[in-house]
Amino acid sequence: MQIVWNEIKKILTWKSLLLLLIINCILYFFLIDFYIKHFPNGRPALDSYRLGIEMIEKYGPTMDDEEFKDFMKTYEVRVKEADRYLQTEKVAVAEGIDTYEKFNSYEWFKASKEAGELRDRLFFEDGTDLFWELQERSRLIGFYEGKEMYSSNATPAQLKRYEELAKEGVFGTYPEVAISNFRDYITNVAVAILFSVVAVMSLAILRDRTRHIVSLQYTARKGRNLLKTKLLAGFVSTLLVITGLLVIYMGLYSLNDTSMYFNVRVNTFIGNESWYNPTFFQYILFTIGGIYLVGIVFGLAAMGFSTIVPNTLTLLGAQIPFVRAFSFSACTD
């Protein structure tokens, strides 16, 4: 145990922790910060987020036909409010857009200057949420009434699965803003963690070789078995690095305040087709598990390279293609 602990201390030095800090600060500001600072990102994302919470509070994690009727009723009430609002606007009355229905079907590309100014004022200046909200409600109604998943480019097997889900009443109904944000966030977090793991673990074994310490280690009682201990220490260190970073990043993610969505199933979010249908919270846990898995694979691979390459430069050269390939595929997915 003492030897494992010694090897861990050799990997997690203050220098490597400083390296972790630098890597993560850089990647945080380049890749991750946006998804915390700008969530929900503008309109109608904010309305989408708020409506999602309202739906969960009223109907729970799913919405059935009866509940949809209630959703429609709320929509109609809000439309009437919009009608009343428009009727108080002289320009709206003069332009013949004194109801929300007319406002919606108005040919805005032919709009007069006054009408254009009115629309801009309603959406961007008055601080009125109503018109943004109605747009989003209308979009959600469209999705519910469509009662289907996206099926573009779906394979026959996927189509069959969509049909099964639709029969069970599972289709994209709830606003996707929370889960989309999480997907983008966690992808970039995974890239940051992967870089961190590779950076810290790469020199774990090579360092002893380049400093001519291996002959001392292998002639001690422990002997060549030390390599196994080093791998174990590397594994534990990888877990510690991943866990530490995940605690920090998930702590930061909690600022997005999406816990209300945790019980909603993935396939219930618009445009989030999945073979399995975990809740959002389970999905978060799966992604965390995935990060551990990929992190461990890359950590062990980094140590593997570390045992065979002759120097640090070769080590970096050998690993860059793998890390780049993963980062590229993660960022493009």
Binding site: K10, D208, R211, I213, L226
Partner: peptide, 22 residues
Amino acid sequence: QFGFYKNYSPAQYLLYLAALKG
């Protein structure tokens, strides 16, 4: 070529090697 860790003191390094020697 006697290798060592630059940031270790002799006491620390010998303690490290002593652990390997059981």
